[in-house]
């Protein structure tokens, strides 16, 4: 009995860790969706690029200094953050500005093509061999009662919580955050109030590139082997966002965590007891998506939109 309980507890903790990554990715494209109504299909690949860039910085610093220390990882993280800010700005320039007046569908397809391009470019530059990212926390674990938790999972959960709190404060208590909220509410009115919405849009893209990079940096050690298929993992954040209610930031977080827990439990305990779950546990997110859309299309926290002609 305690075996089952402890296994279950571990799965829930590691599910929450995976879910916080989904939540961060979902947070990234929810911000873009709220501001510009564009669904950014490239979010998962942004995450992949972030993970690769961080890996590149870490391995360069390590080959220069030799001994891994906390500073190496901090400086590499800082470099990746600077890179992601520049990359977000670049994305705003090549996607958002030229397609300002284009139909939403075209913009979405542009992000999709960008996802393909990024994946191909990274695969070409980094080569076909999977990389092994180095975790700053090693593979230690701690035991609380009967549950064994890896430090990596704990650090992911903690970083995700800190990030969400920081973003919450930026959104609600800074001038730019409030301007962002106003823009997503009504761009025209925001512009009339003197908000520079071009800059706001650029800021939104920068923010989502930043979140994607951070989630990539957090996720990379967890999946052990880093290759370009990590971008597909980002697609699973869509079911998470839909589950929470598309376009709702608390929804993205809650949906992500729930989906992560569902996935790890079905991978662990459930697949030991039910043979058929083994067959579907890598696509369970999509079953969740379809079920949510059939039963409650607005998700848990979504607001029903009134259709207008």
């Amino acid at each position: 009995m305690t075996d089952i309980l402890s296994g279950f507890g571990q799965e829930i903790i590691s599910g929450i860790a995976l879910g916080s990554i989904y939540a961060l990715i979902a947070l990234g494209f929810t911000m873009i969706f709220k501001a510009t109504e564009v669904v950014n299909f490239a979010q998962g690949d942004l995450m992949m690029v972030g993970a690769y860039v961080n890996f590149f910085f870490v391995s360069t610093f390590l080959s220069n200094s030799g001994e891994p220390s906390a500073w190496t990882f901090m400086v590499a993280l800082l470099c990746s953050i600077i890179f992601s800010v520049l990359f977000g700005l670049f994305l705003d320039f090549i996607i958002n500005r030229p397609l300002k007046d284009a139909p939403i569908f075209s913009v979405i397809m542009a992000t999709l093509s960008l996802a393909i391009i990024m994946r191909a470019l990274v695969a070409m530059i980094a080569g076909p061999i999977s990389l092994m990212p180095i975790s700053p926390f090693g593979d230690n674990s701690i035991t609380i009662g009967i549950i064994v938790i890896s430090v990596l999972d704990l650090s992911i959960i903690a970083s995700a919580i800190i990030l969400v709190i920081i973003f919450y404060f930026i959104f609600h208590y800074t001038k730019w955050g409030i301007a962002m909220q106003a823009t997503s509410e009504d761009p025209v009115a925001a512009q009339l109030m003197g908000i520079p919405i071009k800059k706001i849009y650029a800021l939104v893209w920068i923010f989502s590139a930043l979140v994607a990079t951070l989630s990539g940096v957090l996720l990379a050690p967890r999946i052990a082997l880093l290759d370009t298929s990590m971008g597909f993992l980002g697609l699973k954040a869509f079911p998470a966002a839909v589950l929470g209610g598309f376009g709702s930031i608390p929804g993205a977080i809650v949906g992500g965590v729930i989906l992560g827990v569902i996935e790890t439990i079905s991978l662990g305990t459930l697949s030991f007891h039910f043979e058929w779950i083994k067959e579907i546990n890598d696509i369970i997110a999509w079953f969740v998506l379809i079920a949510v859309l059939m039963v409650k299309p607005n998700g848990l926290f979504g607001i029903e939109k009134v259709k207008k002609v």
Partner: peptide, 29 residues
């Protein structure tokens, strides 16, 4: 391209397709 980068054929294909779609969306919708 394979002389320059150590890569698989599928990547070159998707790079070209992605670029074509992107350019079409921007310049020739």
């Amino acid at each position: 391209i394979q002389l320059l980068f150590n890569t698989q054929a599928g990547d070159i294909q998707s790079l070209i397709f992605g670029l074509i779609m992107f350019l079409f969306i921007i310049f020739q919708p």
